[in-house]
Design a protein around this nucleic acid. Structure first.
Length: 874
RNA sequence: GGGUGUAUAGCUCAGUUGGUUAGAGCAUUCGCAUGACAUGCGAGGGGUCUCUGGUUCGAGUCCAGAUACGCCCACCA
């Protein structure tokens, strides 16, 4: 193999698609084709919503999952990364409704339920195809033959069965785990659907605050139209202003005549708000409803599910709440019932997460999951597996957040009044309800509502594995790592845990890893409207997948947000190119084959011993950091070794030392190890280089490097001997530094004298390195000691004196050396203080004390030599 | 209001069970056609580790408090 075959600059575009195809064709993404392996490993990949495209946040998650998958595959496990897509109920329906409105000017009602469903289905299948290609572009080593969609019939079946099972879960008081109930729910008038708490957003808005005359009260409200549904006035129990009125009934004049309210005392009331008295509308406010339940107040619904005033609202019937508010305020003003109006009242308005329409709290018949059922308390069971770490959470700090969230969870409203999604298998006839998969017979009408999307995706961990009889379920459940963005923790992780525990009686996964969010360079959330998003495909096109992968893997820590800009991706593009060139050099140097397998230890130089020891250490560090989910740290260690140790030092050394046989063995081994260690991070470039090494197997399924694999080459421990090379490095750096500081022309060669004292014997063999590694030395005299020239640029490191014979500007040289002296003196003072402290000597570990003493002695020696040199200069 | 997190170089962040003169990348300064790479190489500059107290022989690291910023949840009629 000649070096000329490999281009100088690595071009990902020419490589990535080709490599991906080789991987796919190999079949090794499918664990069935890794039949000789025993230990199983699975990550079920979170399904993105099949209605759009992948953004950089998805990319970050997938890259992390792929990293784990590839790492474990190289550890010799039978690895399954199982991909899929989510139908994303409300979101997709909204997206598609907008689309047909825009493109065809029609609504879902024009199409009818069945046609509409079919069209969205086709739309999702189409988007899935597109997104699958994006995932492949990222290098995701997933088994596409197992890809799932939340609406695949067999998955839906399992989901429906779960619901039936929960309906049939009845405690001794007759309460079902899945039940239908009338509750105040978040109602989106535009979507005409109930929303879960998590689907509601709170926007700060400016509105009006109306101070209204209310019988004996004056009270403040932002929603005067709800006065028609009032049944009480509430005050704080400690509020002296109203003490005498509590428990009494008053007739209140209103726009539809007088009505009666009861005055009650409740701790929920904030005495400092308005006049301290509030009107209570149990049917259209969550807090009011709670107060009403506590005080057994009657409830009076006045707003219906279309957001309009109901028939019981007299002349206001049929108006929207907004229209009604204006009309009622006008009428109240006429009647003199408005005290005054505050214009700039800032309140948190609840809006629909999907369409931003203000939500109406209304009482409605909905299906719920009781999360604290007597037979099986979902929240308690979930709490248990998290607090005792059956499911380990990474980063650990998220455990607290998770537990806190579980403690505050309410019953889960799972019905949605939309068409897109699995329809709830409840059947009605003459006021009777049956819950079962198939229609009970003629004249039974199925529930119109569909399931909340999370009811499907919450079962993703086992539906994808074909629960309960599927081979995959038996082989791979529970899966190893579940990875998701920290923003969907409450939505998804909790639901998967409770549903899995209930249905399979097992945890869904052993580890739960949260990635942070990716923000733009300035730390702002990326969004389409701001146009500050980083498009993964665009970046891949520009810098290559490997660069994109590194940019999301390094410099981030679990659960913490990360700022990402194009320059970061570019810098990793540069690094990938560096690795490419390192490989080129090594391949060129070692030639096609290295026949020797075992090193003759006698022929090793100190540089060899140093790099071997570093390389071994690297394997340990990368492996332990990956095991500890410190992906970033593992990557940084690799980067540091690759660039600073291997390229900047060892490759340079290899150009000058002539123990060819040993060098070739070492270079080859380290290159191969590096490719392997890097592979989970940057699979494309590593596989491409690997293909140039005449290997039988793909790097994809190669074995992860181990210390044992080094022992076959060199089983000696070289840690202690590598310090000779470190000393050499120090000398070389010092010489380069001296040259730079004294502005010696790079082309100008100088004579150097080094007095190494006790280090002489060790350094003797490294003369060639000191002379050649960009030190610009024409002649080197290395001795134990000797005559100390005054006309030379001078420094001393670790007691080793260095003289560069060159013209010396005495004044400048004095200044430079005195500066150095000052630094050292300061350092010595600190050390002495520490060592003069009796407590330190007494209490610190002896090892630390010895270390400090050694440092002091060494620096003191340097100082005395520097002083001698200074004297000579004067 | 409840929960939770962050604060280290101009920027983005590492910093493991407390122990090197606190590190990296980007940016910046100086220099360099050098043979794998100018997507490169060599050498620098740049830090009161937010503040105040405490524990300790020793604190960027542990504890308490303060300040600032952030996120999640709940939500005010």
């Amino acid at each position: 193999m000649s070096q000329s075959e490999l281009p100088k600059i690595y071009d990902p575009k020419k490589v990535e698609d080709k490599i991906y195809k080789i991987w796919e064709d190999s079949g090794f993404f499918n664990p069935d084709n890794l039949s000789d392996r025993k230990e199983k490993y699975a990550n079920i990949l979170p399904p993105p919503n099949a209605n759009g495209e992948l953004h950089i946040g998805h990319a970050s998650g997938y890259v992390t999952m792929d990293l784990l998958g590839r790492y474990n595959r190289m550890l010799g496990k039978k690895v399954l990364l199982l991909p899929g897509k989510d139908h994303a109920g409300i979101q997709t329906q909204v997206v598609y409704e907008k689309k047909i409105k825009k493109e065809r000017g029609i609504s879902r009602h024009d199409l009818g339920r069945d046609k509409f469903y079919q069209e969205i289905y086709d739309f999702c299948i189409d988007r899935s195809q597109y997104m699958r290609n994006q995932e492949k572009k990222l290098g995701l080593s997933a088994d596409w033959s197992r890809e799932k969609f939340t609406l695949n019939p067999n998955l839906v079946n399992i989901v429906l069965e779960t619901f039936v099972q929960m309906y049939n879960e009845v405690d001794n008081e007759g309460n079902r785990m899945a039940y239908k109930g009338k509750r105040i729910i978040n109602w989106c008038p535009r979507c005409a659907s109930a929303l879960a708490d998590v689907e509601v957003e709170h926007e700060e808005t400016t509105s009006k605050l109306y101070w209204i005359k209310y019988g004996p009260f004056v009270l403040a409200t932002s929603r005067p139209e709800t006065k028609l549904g009032d049944t009480a006035v509430a005050v704080h129990p400690d509020d002296d202003r109203y003490k005498d009125m509590v428990g009494k009934k008053y007739m209140i004049p209103g726009v539809l005549g007088e009505f009666e309210v009861l005055v009650i005392a409740d701790k929920e009331v904030d005495m400092s708000f308005g006049s301290g008295a509030i009107k209570v509308t149990p049917a259209h406010s969550f807090t009011d409803n709670e107060i009403a339940i506590r005080h057994r107040l009657p409830s009076r619904q006045i707003i219906d599910e279309s957001g309009k005033m109901m028939a019981n609202c007299g002349k206001y019937a049929g108006m929207s709440t907004k229209e009604a508010r204006e009309a009622i305020v006008t009428d109240m003003q006429k009647m003199g019932l408005i005290d005054h109006i505050e214009d700039n009242y800032i309140q948190n308005l609840s809006v629909c997460e999907r369409c931003k329409t203000p939500i109406e709290p209304i009482p409605s018949e909905q299906w719920f999951i009781n999360v604290d059922h007597k037979n099986f308390s979902l929240k308690n069971e979930a709490r248990k597996v998290i607090s005792n770490e059956d499911i380990k959470i990474h980063p650990a700090s998220f455990k607290k957040i998770m537990l806190n969230w579980i403690d505050n969870v309410h019953d889960w409203c799972i019905s949605r009044q939309i068409w897109w999604g699995p329809r709830i298998p409840a059947w009605y006839k003459d006021g009777e309800i049956k819950v079962q998969l198939d229609s009970p017979g003629k004249d039974w009408v199925q529930e119109e509502d569909t399931f909340d999307t999370w009811f499907s995706s919450g079962q993703w961990s086992y539906t994808t594995l074909e629960y309960p009889e599927g081979k995959d379920f038996k082989d791979f459940y529970p899966s190893n790592n579940m990875i998701m963005g920290r923003d969907i923790l409450p939505f998804w992780a909790f639901r998967m845990i409770i549903l899995s525990l209930y249905k399979t009686k097992q945890i869904p996964f052993k580890n739960l890893y949260f990635t942070g969010l990716i923000r733009d360079e300035k730390g702002l959330k990326m969004s389409k409207s701001k146009g500050n998003g980083i498009e993964p495909l665009e970046m891949i096109e520009k810098f290559g997948t490997d660069a994109v992968r590194l940019s999301v893997l390094i410099g981030s820590s679990p659960g913490n947000d990360m700022n990402l800009g194009e320059t970061k991706i570019e810098s990793y593009r540069n690094f990938v190119n560096k690795l490419w060139n390192i490989s080129r050099f090594v391949i060129a140097k070692i030639g096609a084959n290295v026949t020797e397998e075992k090193i003759d230890e006698e022929n090793l130089t100190s540089a060899d011993k140093w790099i071997i020891s570093k390389a071994k250490n690297l394997i340990t560090e990368v492996t332990t950091n990956l095991e500890k989910y410190n992906f970033s740290l593992a990557g940084e260690k690799l980067q540091d070794f690759t660039k600073n140790d291997f390229a900047d030092w060892y490759l340079e050394v290899a150009k000058f030392e002539d123990n060819q046989t040993e060098k070739n063995i070492i270079l080859k081994k380290i290159l191969e190890d590096l490719l392997k260690l890097w592979h989970p991070f940057i699979p494309f470039v590593t596989e491409e280089v690997w293909s140039n090494l005449n290997k039988e197997k793909l790097l994809l399924i190669e074995a992860w490097p181990t210390l044992e694999s080094w022992n076959e080459i060199s089983d000696k421990n070289h840690d202690t001997e590598s310090h000779i090379f470190i000393k050499t490095q120090t000398i070389i750096t010092a010489i380069r530094n001296l040259r730079a500081e004294n502005k010696i022309e790079p082309t100008k060669k100088v004579k150097a004298i080094i007095y190494a004292e006790t280090n002489f014997d060790e350094l003797k063999n490294n003369e060639i390195l000191i002379t050649n590694l960009r030190t610009g030395i024409s002649e080197l005299i290395l001795a134990k000691s000797g005559e100390k020239p005054a006309d030379a640029i001078y420094t001393i490191v670790d007691g080793i004196e260095i003289y560069l014979i060159s013209e010396v500007n005495k004044e400048k040289e004095q200044q430079r050396i005195q500066e150095e002296l000052r630094n050292l003196t300061k350092y010595v003072a600190g050390l002495e203080q520490k060592l003069n402290n009796v407590e330190f000597i007494k209490k610190a570990p002896s090892q630390i004390v010895a270390q400090e003493k050694e440092k002091l002695a060494s620096v003191k020696l340097n100082i005395s030599e520097i002083k001698k040199h200074l004297e000579k200069l004067e």
